[in-house]
């Protein structure tokens, strides 16, 4: 069969060609389909991506909005307003109470400082009177010269007494402060103040109202005129704006003790 062989070969070839064309076309189709599918999936994926994004955005926004006042119901807003009003008024009350406390405290402080000032003044006065501190102020200077040595210790006791009666707060004789426990004594013609012999030219200084001190000494029949009758004794009284007296030597306390009744 010389004839059939080539024919069959041709048929086979045609068949093979068809087959290969079909295969190529199928492949192309498959590729196309897969491309198409990929596109579909990509579209869907893009949609889902957008959904996820929007979901988060909405979630976030809503969370913040939920807390804002815009979103609250009227009832809630009324409650909030009421709460705020109550809180406000209670805070205002607190402010007022605190202000009252401030005023009270300020008054207390004033009172206390007033009391303290008073106490300080009193203490200073007491220190001056007790002769524990140097003192300064207006007063008189009494100069007595006694060249004949006729004055006695008693005369000085009287002088000090007169000055104190005239309101003297502090007194010194010849630069020695006269305190509450000072004493004059006489040994012969010498006059001794707290163990110190006084020179015969006496200078007595007294702090107080200068005018009344002066008057207490210069009254008719007062000490000045009495002393002036002694032979050789001269008394000069000078009112001064400011004199300074030294402190007394602090006495040693041995026996007395204060006690409260």
């Amino acid at each position: 069969m010389p004839d059939s062989a080539p024919k069959r070969t041709r048929e086979t070839l045609i068949h093979l060609k068809d087959e290969s064309i079909r295969r190529i076309m199928a492949g192309e189709k498959a590729v196309e389909r897969s491309f198409h599918e990929a596109r579909l999936v990509a579209t869907l994926a893009a949609g889902l991506l957008l959904v996820g994004f929007l979901l988060v955005a909405q979630w976030r926004g809503n969370a913040t909005l939920q807390n804002s006042l815009d979103r609250q119901s009227d009832q809630n807003l009324a409650i909030i307003i009421q709460q705020l009003t109550t809180e406000n008024s209670s805070l205002r009350n607190e402010i007022m109470a605190l202000e009252v406390r401030i005023i009270t405290a300020e008054r207390d402080t004033l009172d206390r400082s007033e009391v303290l000032n008073q106490a300080t003044r009193e203490l200073n006065g007491l220190r001056v009177i007790a002769a524990l501190e140097p003192a300064t102020g207006p007063g008189v200077v009494v100069r007595i010269s006694d060249p004949e040595r006729v004055l006695l210790a008693q005369d000085f006791v009287t002088l000090i007494h007169e000055l104190r009666s005239g309101g003297a707060e502090a007194i010194s004789v010849n630069g020695k402060r006269v305190g509450s426990n000072s004493g004059f004594s006489g040994e012969g013609t010498r006059i001794v103040l707290d163990g110190t012999i006084l020179a015969r030219d006496f200078e007595v200084r007294a702090i107080g109202n200068a005018q009344s001190l002066d008057q207490s000494l210069t009254l008719p029949g007062g000490l000045k005129s009495t002393l002036s009758t002694f032979p050789g004794v001269t008394v000069e009284i000078e009112q001064v704006e400011e004199i300074a007296l030294p402190a007394m030597k602090t006495p040693e306390f041995a026996y007395g003790e204060p006690f409260e009744e």
Binding site: L49, G52, R60, S68
Partner: peptide, 18 residues
């Protein structure tokens, strides 16, 4: 894709107007 979208939303810190 969904996870990516959510992550993107979290990362961009987007604020939607009320």
């Amino acid at each position: 894709a969904l996870t990516l979208g959510i992550t993107l939303g979290l990362l961009t810190n987007i604020m939607v107007p009320a």
